[in-house]
């Protein structure tokens, strides 16, 4: 067992001549919550896409849970235990909450290939447990997602991470499109995850939210990791200085 749940070494992604991400050395300790900040196009989302198997890195290593991985697809990353809440919601509007939680990995009673009989009761119960674990409030489990508010939908997406034994949760701007009250609900879920000792990578533009929730802040600028700051040792102005490039920090050196 390594001392980190996730480690990247020299992670690099080039799109043709565009160097979207260069030599990212990142480490995440078990139970740690880290925020990734940076301007649009700084490489945050590119970084996450390499971790979640949406894209394959040009070079560099991803060591997750002590094993080096080269994810071929998001499904492989998910099977390894990395659950992601994407910026664009990956939910099917016309399905109810349990169906969305178990989409693509349904619990079944009899295996008949594609015509396997669903175990609806087990899925409903597991959904309930996941909602309790994350503290998500949904008026009725059996309603379709279509009729739910943005916050409720985001909560369902987050509860999906809790329904399975995920070892790492990544959230890509989970509250970008939400109102004040809904944002508070999502933040509560993140706190619940912290309490449960689940590690988390949070991408956010919201300074208050970041300082409220995480232990450590990593700043990206122009495809490079420019700062690795413990929350107690920094402040908003400092972080902004790194984001805008007014201040250029020492190269990131392993864990804090």
């Amino acid at each position: 067992m390594s001392e980190f749940i996730l480690e990247t070494r020299g992670l690099t992604k080039h799109y043709g001549g565009v160097h979207a991400l260069t030599g990212a050395n990142f480490a995440l300790a078990p139970g740690e919550h880290v925020a990734i900040m940076g301007d649009n196009g700084a490489g945050k989302s590119t970084f996450v896409r390499q971790l979640t198997g949406v894209e394959k890195p040009t070079s560099g290593q991803i060591i997750f849970d002590g094993v080096e991985h080269t994810f071929q697809s998001p499904i492989e990353a998910r099977e390894a235990g990395i659950e992601t809440v994407f910026q664009t919601l990956a939910l099917a509007d016309d399905l109810d909450v349990p169906s969305n939680l178990f989409l693509g990995r349904e619990k079944i009673r009899f295996n008949l290939g594609p015509f396997s009989i669903l175990d609806k009761k087990a899925m409903r119960e597991a959904t309930l447990a996941a909602l309790v674990k994350t503290g998500v409030k949904i008026p009725n489990l059996m309603n379709t997602i279509r009729n739910m508010s943005g916050g409720q939908r985001q909560c369902v997406a987050i509860a999906r991470t809790a329904a399975f034994k995920s070892k790492l949760v990544i959230m890509d701007e989970p509250t970008a499109a939400l109102g004040v009250q809904e944002t508070a609900q999502v933040e509560n879920i993140i706190r619940t995850l912290k309490g449960a000792g689940e590690p988390l990578i949070l991408i956010s533009h919201n300074m208050r939210q970041v300082f409220d929730l995480v232990d450590r802040i990593v700043v990206f600028r122009r495809g490079r990791m420019v700062a690795n700051l413990r929350k107690e040792e920094t402040d908003g102005q400092d972080v902004v200085a790194y984001i805008t490039g007014a201040k250029t920090g020492i190269e990131y050196e392993g864990a804090a």
């Binding site: 909602l131 674990k133 503290g135 409030k137 008026p139 489990l141 509560n188």
Partner: peptide
């Protein structure tokens, strides 16, 4: 937090 949803 940790209250859980109203269910069915």
């Amino acid at each position: 937090h940790g209250i859980g949803g109203l269910t069915f």
